[in-house]
Design a protein around this nucleic acid. Sequence first.
DNA 1: TAAATACTTCGGTCAAGACCGTAGTGTTTC
DNA 2: GAAACACTACGGTCTTGACCGAAGTATTTA
Lengths: 251, 251
Amino acid sequence: MDTGPKIAQVAALIGDPARANMLSALMDGRTLTASELAYVSGVAPQTASGHLAKLSDAGLLALAKQGRRRYFRLASPHVARVLEGLMVVAQEGPARQRNLWRGGETLRHARTCYDHMAGRIAVAIADRLVQQSFILLDEDGGQLTDAGRSFFDELGVDLRLVSRRRVFCRPCFDWSERRPHLAGAVGAAILRHALEHDWVEHVRDSRALVVTPVGVRELATTFGIEGAPPTDGCKGPVASLSRGRAAVIPI
Amino acid sequence: MDTGPKIAQVAALIGDPARANMLSALMDGRTLTASELAYVSGVAPQTASGHLAKLSDAGLLALAKQGRRRYFRLASPHVARVLEGLMVVAQEGPARQRNLWRGGETLRHARTCYDHMAGRIAVAIADRLVQQSFILLDEDGGQLTDAGRSFFDELGVDLRLVSRRRVFCRPCFDWSERRPHLAGAVGAAILRHALEHDWVEHVRDSRALVVTPVGVRELATTFGIEGAPPTDGCKGPVASLSRGRAAVIPI
DNA sequence: TAAATACTTCGGTCAAGACCGTAGTGTTTC
DNA sequence: GAAACACTACGGTCTTGACCGAAGTATTTA
């Protein structure tokens, strides 16, 4: 079968910097308007419109019209996983500027990854849960133990949405830490809990999460984790609209 | 962080038809020479050489020199997973010619997917194992049960390589059947067993697998599966070297 | 040593498509 | 109804890079 050309079509769509920026911006599961996506991708609205049409036609984005706006989001978790995977491969690729981050310290500390958390904090949480035998994890998958279920019950994390007999979780290779964090239903539940209880907050127009004072305290008591980010000069995204070809926009 | 441009770089590499054909051809885990890859990708050796250099530089392919030949293989399972994911997304994309296969009936029936089996047979095996409670499987992961371990032990499937306390398996969304089959360590073990016991054989220069008479019998008695492929006119890949831009090569 | 094989480098051609200015359409606000 | 807003369609420019012919470098075979 000609799978080659098929995957080439999809990959080529993701392979344009402007479109990749758009998809990255949607990786946290939000829905954004065409204008917002034009902004984050660093191109003019007309250009963005064309890109978005292609992405929608190909089934990578889902579109909801509302009045004069068009809201876009990733069409499926499968799309998010492909993007995840590309980040991993991009990261493990050549030895080049592997630790070169453009104002990315905040992102490296904590961020969303579609529907769950990623970054140092997320890896630390995963490590802790494994160490306590609350979850079992290896390369191919993971599972919540009975002890783990009790732990989350006491914590008040809502796992009802995922409580079939077994609760599996999925390791998601963290491109910044190069170690797995928790994805899947359990990962999503943890992020939901953290947001609802103000442990972390979204940074506007970014996938970054900041750990609140409450979060620092709770992460310490609950997981024994140092939640405060290392202080450095550059935090938060710097909006820089450029002319010419789609440029690197720190998200 | 500028993850957008990074994933764009990798995606753009996969996004060229010639390179996508090369990667697809390597999806079964084989190592192929530059010449062979030039052939399957439908371009001249000089062109292929350039493509292969790019793929190696980016860390998508691993290279082994041997005499005057260069052997290439996928650099890591992560690369295979990205390709897997792209197939899924490409498949679920637009409603277009979803069931249009070019001589792909054989592939649809049984094929390799990096290190495990895919296609109708593989999905049927997964279904059966789930139905018998030998494995537990959901969207996020899967696990071998004690009964399942016994089953494989009796069958003589070698799971020693993967026998930590828990044996997880990974669902891999089958792009032809649109349902999951078994990947990960367990899936790999099944394929290994099937090849060693002559249940299936590789089709030359293809990812397709043919089920042998032995295989038909064994699949029936072991899994209650009809292993024989539906008969139709077109089977096997048709090598068609074309001139001009890299064309669709049935692999 | 000569010839064949496997692959790479260089140079020039050519097509695809990303980009934006201009000019639209549809929707909301005043 | 007019103006502002969100987005789209069209047309022309310009860069990127895929492609192959020809020539060159290793390596093996004769």
